[in-house]
Simulated assay, not measured.
Amino acid sequence: MDITTYWQQFKQSHPEVTTDEYEAFSLGAEDDLQQQDQLAKLVYDGIKTATTSAYDLYKQDETDPLPKFGEYGIILDGHHQPVCVTKTVVVETVPFLQVSAEHAYHEGEGSRTLEEWRKVHWDFFKREYQEENHEFNETLPCVCEVYEVVYR
C-alpha cells in the first residue's frame, strides 16, 4: 500500500486527527533492509517505543527536521511499505553518555540493556559520522524520542 493511502486510512479511523503533517521513515541503517524490517516489526509489536539519533546529523532544514512532541510518523519496513503510525510523546537531547538505561530498554532491541545500547549505537553513530567526515565522541548530543503506536 502506498504511504498516502495508509495515512488516509489512519485519519478515517481517527477523525480527531486534523493534520496532514507526518514523516514516513524506516529505522536503522539505510543499506540494511533486514534491520529495517526487524525494527519496524518491533515497533508494530509495541516492543520498540523509543529511538535515538545523532543531533549533529540532522539536516536542519525542512527535509529532515528534528522530531517534535505530538508529531505523527509512519514507520516503514525495508521495502518502503507502511507498517504503523506512531505519535511522539517525548523528545529530549542529551549527550551520548547520558542516555538512560530506561531509554535503552524502551528501544526494545537485543538484551535491552544500556551496555548493549551503548555498544550498538556507538558503532552505528561512528559509521554515520565517518560518512559525513566527522568524528563521533561520547559527549556529542543525541536526540532521544519516545513514541506510541496509534494505528496498525
Rank of each mutant, 00 (worst) to 15 (best):
P95G: 15
T18D: 14
D31N: 08
T113N: 03
P67D: 14
R152W: 09
Y151W: 07
E145G: 04
P15N: 10
L140K: 10
A54P: 05
D32P: 00
E116D: 10
K126G: 00
K48G: 10
Q38V: 10
D20M: 14
T49I: 13
A50T: 15
D64P: 00
T113K: 11
C144E: 02
F125T: 00
G78M: 09
A24M: 03
T93N: 08
R152D: 07
Y58N: 03
E16W: 12
D37S: 06
P65F: 07
Q81M: 14
D32C: 03
V94K: 15
Q81E: 05
S26Y: 08
C144I: 02
T63G: 08
A50S: 10
L57F: 00
P15L: 14
T63C: 06
K126A: 00
L97Y: 11
S53W: 00
Q130H: 06
K126W: 02
Y151L: 12
L66I: 15
D31C: 04
H106E: 04
T19N: 14
Y44E: 10
V91G: 03
H106D: 10
W117N: 01
N137R: 15
Y55C: 02
G73M: 01
A104D: 02
V149Y: 13
Q35K: 13
F69T: 01
L27I: 05
E102V: 01
Q9T: 06
A101I: 07
D77I: 00
K11H: 02
Q35E: 13
T51D: 05
Q35H: 06
E30T: 14
G78H: 11
D64H: 08
H79S: 13
V150A: 15
F125Y: 12
G73S: 10
T49G: 03
G46Q: 06
H80M: 10
T49D: 06
F25L: 11
P141C: 12
A29F: 05
G110I: 04
T51L: 15
T49C: 13
Y147W: 12
V120P: 00
E135I: 08
K119T: 09
Q8L: 07
V91Y: 09
R152H: 07
E128W: 02
F96L: 09
H79T: 05
F124N: 06
Y147H: 12
P15D: 11
T18G: 10
L33M: 10
I74G: 01
G73C: 13
F124Y: 08
I47Q: 11
D64V: 04
K11T: 13
Y151C: 09
F25E: 14
H121M: 14
A40P: 00
P82I: 10
V90E: 14
C144K: 04
G46T: 08
G108Q: 04
E71D: 12
T52I: 04
T139K: 06
V149G: 07
Q130Y: 07
E62M: 10
H134E: 13
D64S: 08
F10H: 02
V83A: 03
G73E: 13
E131F: 00
F136T: 07
C144A: 12
